[in-house]
Every structure is written in C-alpha cells, then in structure tokens.
C-alpha cells in the first residue's frame, strides 16, 4: 500500500486536479432552484423541476401571449375569453411537462432514486400553478365579473387532470394535450348548445361537481398508470 503523502506524482497531481476541477466547474443554482430545493427538501427534485420542458422561457412567453390576447379580447367584447382559453392552455402545458418524447432524459429519469412519479407530480403542479397565476392575472385585468375570474379554475383542474391521465396512459404528450383540448372544446360547445352561450361552462355552479369528479377520476388513472407493480421478487 502507498502511504498518504508518498503516492506517485501523477496520482497526486490527478487528485489535486479533481479538487480544482470540482471547484472550477461547480454550478451555482439559481434563486428559483434554491427555493424549490428548500421547499421540496430535495436538490434532485428541484433540479428536475427547473428542467421542465413546458416551464422553459419559450413556453412561458407563449402562455403569457395567449392569455394577454384573451385579456384584450375580453375587454373589447365583454366575452370572458381568458376563462375559455386558460384551461386548454394549461392542459397542453401539463401534457408536455414530462414523459417519453417530451422529456429528453425520460428513460434515464426512470432509473433514478428520485422517483419519476415525484418528478411528474412536482412538474405538473408547477405548470398548473404558473398557468393559474397567469390566468388569474389576465382574468383580473380583463375586468370581467369576479365569479368568472375564479370560475374557470375548477374546470381547468379537471381538464389538466384529463390531459395528464391520457398522456400517462398513451405515453404521448401529443395525445394527452389533444384529449385535454378536445375535452374542453366539447364542453364549451355543449354549453353553447344547451344554454346558447359558451361561457355557461365557467359560470354554472351546478357543473362544479362533475368537474371535480372528472379531476378525481383522471388523477386516479394517472396515479394507476405511473405505478410500478409489486410482485417482482
């Protein structure tokens, strides 16, 4: 054995370089990642959160643009377009938060100690939360009635859960987002056909229970499809 301090020069230099490189290459997490790491109590989960495809700057800007257009249209026409846009926009974001074909490192993530289901959960919550905040700001700025400003949050939850359940079942973000958007469009058209105005789907309080039922059912499906079966040993 080589005693400490008496190792060959190249080995000693190698060790020294590793220490230098570790400091030189060390990455300083940004403020969002630092806060997330504290809240989630997991630096890995926080890192996975900031790598969410549908939380990248381009996606966030696109979401903001859609909701800004909705806000301007709402102010001009009095029709609550923000309330009609927001659930579909959020559903697409949720479907593109995680999964094969969307997350470049998905296969590797599935073999990591930080569970892929936890990664999915925090990413879905983050995308939902961001869309809810942007949607609320746009709805409030559009000046429509308070009931409508908040009324779309529950349908948005249902539509997002539907998109998430379909994306995890089909293992396709495109299919998931299509299901979410299609589900919401059908709901709006049904509202138009039944009451003569599409906005009934965000103002009718009797719909809250069905929305919550859809959200609960779809969430259960997503949980089921992201499980790892027992009995492998």
């Amino acid at each position: 054995m080589t005693e400490p301090g008496h190792e060959p020069l190249d080995v000693a230099l190698g060790r020294a370089w590793i220490e230098v490189a570790a400091q030189l290459w060390r990455r300083r997490p940004g403020p969002v990642e630092r806060v997330a790491a504290r809240l989630l109590r997991s630096p890995g989960l926080a890192r996975a959160l900031v790598a969410t495809p549908s939380l990248l700057l381009g996606w966030v800007l696109a979401t903001a643009v859609v909701l800004t257009v909705g806000m301007l249209a709402t102010r001009e026409t009095g029709t609550p377009y923000v309330a009609l846009f927001a659930p579909a926009v959020a559903a697409v974001g949720i479907a593109y938060a995680y999964g094969p074909g969307v997350d470049d490192a998905w296969e590797l993530t599935c073999s990591m100690a930080v569970s892929d289901r936890m990664v999915l959960l925090v990413r879905a919550l983050a995308v939902f939360g961001l869309n809810a905040v942007l949607g609320l700001a746009a709805a409030a700025a559009s000046g429509v009635a308070m009931a409508v400003t908040f009324g779309w949050l529950i349908p948005m939850t249902a539509v997002c859960a539907l998109a998430l359940a379909t994306a995890t079942f089909a293992r396709s973000a495109l299919v998931g987002s299509a299901a979410g958007v299609a589900g919401w469009v059908i709901t709006v058209l049904a509202g138009q056909a039944a009451a003569g105005r599409p906005t009934t789907v965000v103002t009718e309080s009797a719909l809250i229970v069905p929305y919550l039922a859809v959200a609960a059912g779809a969430t259960a499906i997503a949980v089921y499809w992201t499980r790892v079966p027992k009995g492998t040993a």
């Binding site: 890995g44 790598a51 470049d104 490192a105 998905w106 990591m112 100690a113």
Partner: peptide, 21 residues
C-alpha cells in the same frame, strides 16, 4: 441516450448525480 441539449457536460452529469441522491 436522452439529454438536455442546452446543458453543459458538467450540468448533465450533475443533474443525474442529484437525481441519484
């Protein structure tokens, strides 16, 4: 091998070190 194109090599390796706890 999937990877995030905008990550550097060190960021890529560090990402999985963190996910491996």
């Amino acid at each position: 091998l999937g990877y995030y194109p905008s990550f550097t090599v060190v960021e890529f390796v560090e990402y999985f070190a963190l996910l491996k706890e």
